[in-house]
Simulated assay, not measured.
Amino acid sequence: MESVDRTSGSADVAALRDVAVSIIDISSDVRRKSHNETGVRPLSNGLLEILRVIENHPGITVAEAAARLGRQFSNVSVQLRELVAAGLVTRIRDAADKRYVSLHPTAESQRIKVLLEGAWADALATASGRLSPEERGQIAACLPALRRLAAILAEPE
């Protein structure tokens, strides 16, 4: 993993810190403000992260999910049991090799994903209504770079 040279470009490091803090704050506030309207049982950040990895990579194994999240296999396995019990994830054993188990989102998981992502969009739409048209344009212009950054960050470590 590449790291930022903190001795040069301190303005860049400070700007990246500000971006990271803003993203975390926006994420927390969007989740909090949008959850009540969905009627969906709140999921912890850890469970939601696992679920989103499985939704984005159907058929992934527990070990692969743990690697993508940078977490211990045993911790992911424990949280995965909760997602299976909630009917959000299914485990499918390979017919040829019973040790191999793939993880798949359920129809309920997909339904909740659509509800939550819609509620998140609504929360952002409400808040962005208070921005100027220029500010909304700046956010839209950043989307390709933010998507690329998200893809890089999602790569297994």
Rank of each mutant, 00 (worst) to 15 (best):
R136Y: 04
T90I: 15
L131P: 01
S77W: 09
Y100I: 11
R91Q: 14
N56R: 13
S28F: 10
V89R: 02
S77K: 11
I139R: 01
E155H: 05
V40K: 00
A150H: 13
G39E: 04
L116D: 02
G46L: 10
Q79G: 07
A96W: 09
A63W: 07
A141M: 07
E64S: 01
D25Y: 15
H104R: 12
E55W: 01
V19P: 01
W120K: 03
I139H: 04
R91P: 05
K98R: 15
Y100A: 10
Q110D: 10
D29V: 05
T106C: 01
I50W: 05
R17I: 06
R99H: 10
S8T: 02
R68Y: 06
E157H: 15
A11Q: 14
L146G: 02
I26L: 12
V84Q: 12
V30H: 08
S74Y: 14
E117A: 07
A123D: 05
E157C: 10
V89D: 01
I152R: 08
A15V: 07
I23D: 05
Q72E: 15
I54Q: 00
W120L: 02
R91L: 12
P58L: 05
A151E: 13
T7L: 12
S77N: 08
S102A: 14
A86Q: 03
I26Q: 01
A11I: 11
A20Y: 14
R136E: 06
R68S: 04
G129Y: 07
A119P: 00
D97E: 12
A150T: 14
D18N: 05
G137I: 06
V13G: 08
V19A: 03
V84L: 09
S28H: 11
R136Q: 08
V84A: 11
L146A: 11
L69G: 03
V76L: 09
T61N: 04
I112F: 03
V62R: 10
P105N: 02
R6G: 09
T7P: 03
R99T: 13
L88K: 05
M1H: 10
E55F: 03
P58V: 01
L51W: 00
V62T: 15
S132W: 03
L83K: 06
P58H: 01
I139Y: 05
I54C: 01
A123N: 01
V62H: 04
A107R: 09
G70W: 07
E37C: 04
L115S: 03
L146Y: 11
D97I: 13
G137V: 02
S10R: 13
A86D: 10
Q79L: 15
A140H: 08
I24P: 07
R68K: 10
N36E: 14
L88Q: 07
Y100P: 09
L43S: 05
T38S: 02
R52S: 05
A119D: 05
R32Y: 06
A107G: 02
V78N: 12
K113F: 13
I152C: 07
V19F: 08
R91A: 15
E155T: 13
G137D: 10
E157K: 14
R99K: 13
L146K: 09
I92H: 14
R91M: 15
P42H: 00
V4G: 02
E135F: 14
E55H: 01
I50A: 08
D122W: 00
V114C: 02
R41K: 11
A119Q: 02
A95L: 14
I60Q: 00
R31T: 00
A11M: 08
A127P: 00
F73H: 07
A67L: 10
P156L: 13
